[in-house]
């Protein structure tokens, strides 16, 4: 079936932000990203409206909507919720067909997955119910250091002497960070230390699923160059990052919807 000029939407209702992507023939024609806020339904409607406007199409032009993410059950649209790990894998496969291992660092969890040559899930592991395994850890440290979250990656790369955190708990790491600031540690060194601690946690998950190259990093963590470098160093493989890695799950949801709708 010809899917050119047919439009599909993918909606990723995450804990930190909601993302909407419009695609036509596996190409992104419009997208939007807004904070999730306190009302998932309202936010989903708003972000979809913005994405449709960016793609310059109307809601009626959509052939299907796929929805994923922790808030997927709250979707206001007629769309079947899909596994976000599967959506991430599908999205990564389009950008990097050689990808066999996926790392998704989101606001709530870190997810790792082995993916097949068809972009499907072969095995997966999620981090525990623990903030140090998630992007929330970075948000906490960014707030303490008063460095905008989008700048922490570049700053971390300038570090000469990364500090070593003596804890793997976000709550204790917060107080430890404050102590290190008081001792005169540089923000870059603190951030590099945080990145190393997170990379170490990711590495534990990857060892358990037996990583295979190529390795792709998605989610908010993918926008953090310091984190990508730390993970690459500890696993000994280069890290691939798709363009706008926070959109990969929404993009994958749209692609999967296109495949299932168009047969």
């Amino acid at each position: 079936m010809n899917t050119i000029n047919q439009y599909y939407a993918g909606l990723d209702m995450g804990s930190v932000s909601i993302k909407a992507v419009i695609i036509s023939n596996q190409k992104i024609t419009g997208w939007a990203l807004i904070p999730s806020g306190g009302n998932y339904k309202t936010a989903a409607t708003t972000v979809m409206t913005q994405a449709l406007a960016a793609a310059k199409i109307r809601r009626e032009d959509l052939c299907g909507i796929g929805v994923t993410g922790l808030g997927a059950q709250s979707t206001p649209f007629d769309a079947r919720p899909m596994s976000d790990i599967s959506c991430q894998a599908r999205g990564c496969h389009v950008f990097f067909p050689s990808a066999r291992t996926l790392i998704d660092i989101g606001g709530q969890f870190t997810k790792t997955a082995k993916i097949t040559d068809k972009g499907k899930i072969a095995d997966f592991l999620m981090s525990e119910k623990c903030a140090t395994g998630s992007g929330r850890f970075l948000q906490v440290i960014s707030r303490i250091l008063q460095v905008p979250i989008e700048e922490i990656g570049e700053l971390s790369l300038t570090s000469q002497h990364p500090i070593k955190f003596s804890t793997n708990c976000a709550v204790f790491a917060e107080s430890e960070t404050i102590s290190r600031i008081a001792e005169g540690a540089k923000p870059a060194d603190i951030l590099a230390g945080v990145h190393k601690a997170m990379a170490s946690k990711v590495n534990m998950l990857l060892k358990r699923i037996k990583l295979a190259p190529d390795v792709v990093l998605t989610g908010g963590g993918g926008e953090d160059a310091g984190l990508a470098k730390a993970i690459g160093q500890i696993i000994g493989h280069p890290i691939l990052v798709p363009p706008n890695p926070r959109l990969t799950a929404a993009f994958g949801a749209a692609c999967l919807t296109m495949e299932t709708t168009s047969g």
Binding site: S83, K120, M126
Partner: peptide, 25 residues
Amino acid sequence: RDYSEAQWKAQIGAFIDALEARTDQ
């Protein structure tokens, strides 16, 4: 207090997809 329904459902969704991928293969 050690349970998270959202996390479980996310994992179960991926697990079902992995089962499906294996069946496809």
